[in-house]
Design a protein around this nucleic acid. Structure first.
Lengths: 100, 100
DNA sequence: AACACAAATCGGTATTTATAGATTTGTTAT
DNA sequence: ATAACAAATCTATAAATACCGATTTGTGTT
């Protein structure tokens, strides 16, 4: 549990927003017509559109969130779906409570 | 509660260390001979010595921690004492639990 | 008033981060 | 095989951050 790395990941408004949006995909994103559900999370294009930043930037951001295990990535066909990893997020908060 | 600003403050190892040291001043610092207690926290020189960084850097770091209300500063004579503000720290963690 | 010392501020440089565009890679459909 | 498109990676630049040394400010002591 690398606190500094996690806090860096969480020190950017867009990345925090993305984590928030991923809590309620139905509310924040259009439906995945190919899949019909958000079981694997949300595809990068949708996140990019919502964040209104470039594809490369969002791809980088998602990588950073993956690197701290705050999201999982699942590739299905052409698309990669990103989903919050509640377990790690909760662990992080508990860790903070102990260690901060 | 400005999450981004707080997370920025917490994205530096030294600042996190300082917060940790301030949890147990008796363990981490020599006694305050002038005062005889740590009721107002720890003076900047001690923190600087422990962190092994320049006075100006530590002064800046303490300001950043003050700006997010994670520490309070009390000037007594020549010295300024810094103390954790447990209330804000706890609020932050609770906020994270809700909003992250 | 002059000195000494703690802390704050100012100015500077090196490193890191935010972000974009261009290119490459992976995958599906022709 | 080629086209089409999503996502990843590479390269680059502007802005922010991590420090430091020098200077200034605040306070207590001579």
């Amino acid at each position: 549990m690398d606190l500094i790395k996690i806090n860096k990941a969480l020190s950017n408004q867009t990345r925090v927003n993305i984590l928030n949006w991923l809590k309620e995909p139905e509310k924040c994103f259009p439906p995945h017509t190919e899949l019909g559900h958000f079981d694997f999370g949300v595809c990068l294009v949708f996140i990019k559109n919502k964040a209104d930043l470039s594809q490369s930037t969002i791809s980088q951001y998602m990588l950073q969130l993956q690197n701290v295990d705050f999201v999982t990535a699942t590739r299905l066909g052409k698309w990669t779906y990103f989903k919050r990893n509640e377990e790690t997020i909760e662990k992080y908060i508990n860790y903070l409570k102990e260690e901060l």
